[in-house]
């Protein structure tokens, strides 16, 4: 029996992330974690590698978690969780644990796309029963916005600063969701907090499947994206509606869009409110926007062309 996702019912559930955490005001990661924990019914054990979420929820003698939570090093959250899950299976086999427990990793894009990739790949390949969630804010925000494999093309960061030499980051994002899908694991999805029902349904679906699962969730960071403190949800909605962040799932290899924007907006609408893309609107840099738009259109058309039409648009 899964929890009803009506907000009225969810509001009666205990919140497993306590207030008083030190995430910035308006942080997208806090919203993502909150939604994920609300959607899960079973007892959860979580793990986070180094990242914004880890440093802000566990300062000195304080913890914001109301669930067992492990902080591991930057590169091995998936390996840590794999160990915990293996021990759980061993104890269950010996009759020392009877409870059904779910295992979740909350990692940032640095700990997923770059530093944690090998341990993640290994854990997925070995088939551990866990859900790996990447909250993707598109740079190393914790240490002051250094570029990562998730930083979009043309974005200005402190290690790819836009100036007279380079107009921001000159490489495209790594397509981590497809890299994980190539591991042939049972469930891979991409979600956004602006479409909370879609996000929480994906979490519930993932929890109902045994084996390794990966969900990549967009997590706006107004400090690194150089936008306003109140626009985390508005920006993630624009990311979905411009098809920069398509919402889809791959259930046993079958790709399915879970939301099709009513009107596909130009990418510019997503880029304009963000200071990290401000330099792209100068005439000499417009080719970057054009190239990004071409890439997004090609990816979107390929997805529709592959028969991934929306399985019923979810009204938000």
């Amino acid at each position: 029996m899964t929890t009803s996702l009506k907000l009225k019912d969810l509001s009666k559930k205990e919140m497993l992330l306590a207030p008083g955490h030190r995430m910035c005001q308006g942080c997208g990661a806090a919203i993502v974690v909150k939604m994920v924990l609300l959607a899960i019914d079973k007892p959860v054990v979580a793990c986070s590698p180094t990242g914004c979420l880890e440093v802000t929820t566990c300062i000195s003698d304080y913890t914001a978690w109301k669930i067992p939570w492990i902080h591991s090093a930057f590169e091995n959250a998936a390996a840590t969780m794999a160990g915990v899950e293996t021990m759980y299976r061993a104890l269950k086999k010996r009759g020392k644990i009877s409870q059904d427990i779910s295992f979740v990793v909350f990692a940032g894009d640095g700990g997923t796309y770059d530093i944690g990739l090998q341990s993640l790949s290994g854990a997925m390949e070995r088939g551990h029963d866990m859900l790996y969630i990447c909250y993707d804010n598109g740079a190393y925000m914790n240490t002051g916005t250094q570029r990562s494999g998730a930083t979009p093309f043309g974005a200005s960061t402190t290690t790819s600063p836009a100036g007279s030499s380079v107009p921001g980051k000159m490489q495209h994002r790594k397509d981590i969701t497809r890299i994980m899908a190539a591991h042939n694991i049972p469930y891979v999805a991409q979600a956004s907090p602006s479409h909370h029902l879609d996000l929480m349904r994906k979490i519930q679906k993932a929890m109902s499947i045994s084996g390794p699962k990966f969900i990549n969730i967009l997590s706006p960071c107004h400090r690194g994206w150089r936008s306003k403190s109140d626009d985390a949800i508005a920006l993630s909605r624009l990311a979905v509606n411009t098809c920069y962040w398509p919402l889809f799932e791959m259930d046993n290899g079958k790709t399915q869009l879970t939301h099709t924007p009513k009107e596909k907006l130009p990418l510019k609408d997503f880029l304009r409110p963000q200071g990290r893309f401000a330099h792209l609107f100068r005439p000499e840099n417009e080719w970057i926007i054009e190239q990004s738009q071409t890439q997004i259109d090609a990816d979107w058309n390929a997805m529709i062309g592959a028969g991934a039409g929306a399985s019923g648009v979810i009204e938000e």
Partner: peptide, 14 residues
């Protein structure tokens, strides 16, 4: 240091 209360970050008034 042992945290004896889950969610004790609630003591930090942000």
């Amino acid at each position: 240091p042992v945290i004896t209360e889950p969610g004790n970050s609630a003591l930090l008034k942000t």
